[in-house]
Amino acid sequence: MKTLYLLCGLLCDERVWEAQANALRPEYHVRVISFGNGEDTLAAMAERVLADAPASFALAGHSMGGRVALEVCRRAPERVERLALLDTGYEAVAPGEADKRAVLVDQARLEGIGSIAAAWGLPMLAPGHRDDPALVQAVFDMVGRMSPAVYAAQTRALLARPDATGVLRSLACPTLVLCGMQDAWSPPERHERMAALIPGRPQVRLVDDCGHMSPMEQPAAVTSALRAWLGASI
């Protein structure tokens, strides 16, 4: 059975991939990895994946997890059979980004991680999903399972991230680039630029009525896109 890694993003745990993991487990050995063990660099996160993984595997990353996936490809491209990048990015830190992130990290330290659930979590959802009580509660609960220390460590990793343009240009495996059409955090235009950097013809999927939390907001559409990607010829 082929192995599929699903990498979680900032303040996300296994819940973010729950629908996809449940759907794909009959066909694949699915491993969901969240980064709450104190890793504070993308390199350390990538090495954790590589230490756990078999000689070859499929790799999907959401949000920060997509950046980790690109770091895995930087370090061991020969082991990645196929790559999926969801609601993520590839550029280095933008001007002013550190200050914006510091505000929420400081709030989490002073008031507790639950205090940023609405400030951080709601904008991640498409406007039409922000009044879905079950979805909103699932996102808030996921944030609440983290801690200020985890949030700070993940933020340090993101603020020290390298530019991954060269990694995208070097990809030689079947690749999926997926984004919610209403993702205000990492918009479709960024994903179109990513796809243009990838050699060959990557699969590109823009999911309507969907924000940054695509695996939770549109689970069926994301699962369908992953199935098509996993079935693509090598």
Rank of each mutant, 00 (worst) to 15 (best):
H191I: 09
L24P: 01
V139D: 03
R67F: 02
A76N: 07
L10W: 08
W120I: 14
G112Y: 02
R82Q: 14
Q20K: 11
A134M: 10
A118T: 15
A232P: 02
P77R: 08
P188T: 12
D52N: 11
L171M: 14
R130T: 14
A164Q: 09
S34A: 14
E189T: 12
L42D: 05
Q154E: 11
A118I: 09
V103Y: 00
A84H: 05
Q203M: 15
P26N: 13
L168W: 04
A21S: 12
L83S: 07
Q107I: 10
E97Y: 00
C73I: 04
A184E: 15
V136T: 15
P77D: 12
E192R: 15
E18M: 03
A225C: 12
R101Q: 06
P133V: 15
V80N: 06
D99N: 09
V68Q: 03
R31Y: 02
T41V: 11
V204Y: 00
L197P: 03
V204M: 09
A108W: 01
V68L: 08
W17G: 01
A228P: 00
V136I: 15
I113M: 05
Y151Q: 13
P127H: 11
V32R: 05
V68W: 06
H29W: 03
K100I: 05
D13V: 10
M194R: 04
V150I: 15
V207A: 07
I198A: 13
G121C: 06
G128R: 14
R130D: 07
A19Q: 11
Q107E: 12
M64T: 05
A196N: 05
T88H: 10
E71P: 02
G65M: 07
E14M: 05
G114Y: 02
A134T: 11
G180W: 03
G36P: 04
E217M: 06
I198Y: 03
A51Y: 00
G112P: 00
A149Q: 13
A149F: 01
R74L: 02
D132Y: 01
A69P: 01
E47M: 14
V103S: 08
A46M: 10
A43C: 07
D163A: 14
G112N: 13
Y151H: 10
A117R: 10
E47H: 06
L135S: 12
R161G: 05
R161I: 11
V16G: 04
R227E: 10
S63E: 05
E189K: 08
P174V: 10
V105E: 12
M124R: 03
A126S: 14
V72H: 05
R145K: 08
S186F: 09
P188Q: 07
V167T: 12
E111T: 06
G128C: 04
Q154D: 02
H212E: 09
R101I: 07
A152G: 09
A46L: 08
W120G: 07
D106N: 15
D40H: 10
E39G: 08
C8R: 14
A126E: 01
A51S: 12
D13Y: 06
V80M: 08
L230P: 03
D208H: 08
L159F: 00
N37Q: 11
A94R: 14
